Computed example of a mutant assay.
Amino acid sequence: MCAVCSVRRPADSNSKLLSRGGAALTGGRSLPAACPGLARGHRQRNEKKRRRRKKKNNEAEPALSAVLHVLLRLHPDCPSSWLLSATSSAWHFALRLFGLVLASVAAWYLGYFVAAYVPQNTVSIAALQEIGKKPVLRAPAPKRQKCDLWSPCPPGNFAYRILSGGGKQRRPTICFEDEELINAGNHVAGSGINIAIVNYKTGKFMSANFFEMWAGDHSREMMDFIRKAPEGTLLLMATHDDGSTRLNDDTKKLVEELGSKEIKNIKFRSSWVFIAAKGFKLPDNIQKEKINHSDQTKNRYKGWPAEIQIEGCIPRNLI
Rank of each mutant, 00 (worst) to 15 (best):
R43P: 03
G27R: 13
Q44S: 12
T122E: 08
R8D: 08
H293T: 00
R144F: 04
C5S: 15
P142W: 02
H92C: 03
G279V: 09
P79Y: 01
A39M: 07
R269H: 04
F274M: 07
P230Y: 03
L71W: 11
T233S: 14
G37R: 14
D178M: 00
R316L: 10
G22D: 01
T87Y: 04
A34R: 10
T239A: 12
D217Y: 14
Y200D: 10
N14R: 15
A215S: 15
M213G: 05
F113A: 14
L18R: 02
K48I: 08
S294T: 04
F225N: 09
G22W: 05
K228S: 10
P79H: 09
V70N: 14
G165N: 05
A115Y: 07
L64W: 01
F280L: 14
G216M: 14
E61H: 08
K253L: 14
K290Y: 11
A115I: 01
N317K: 10
R300K: 12
L181Q: 13
S19M: 05
I275K: 08
I308G: 02
A39L: 07
T202K: 10
D178C: 01
E311F: 08
H218Q: 14
I174T: 02
F211R: 06
H218D: 12
H293G: 01
D12P: 00
T87S: 13
K54L: 12
V114C: 14
T26D: 07
R144T: 07
A60V: 04
P142C: 03
S85C: 00
W214S: 12
A3R: 12
K298I: 01
Y117P: 02
R52S: 11
R170S: 11
S81L: 07
G37I: 06
R73L: 15
K290R: 15
R171F: 14
L181G: 02
R43S: 13
M237R: 06
S151F: 12
A33W: 13
Q287W: 07
K290G: 07
N299E: 05
D250G: 08
R220T: 10
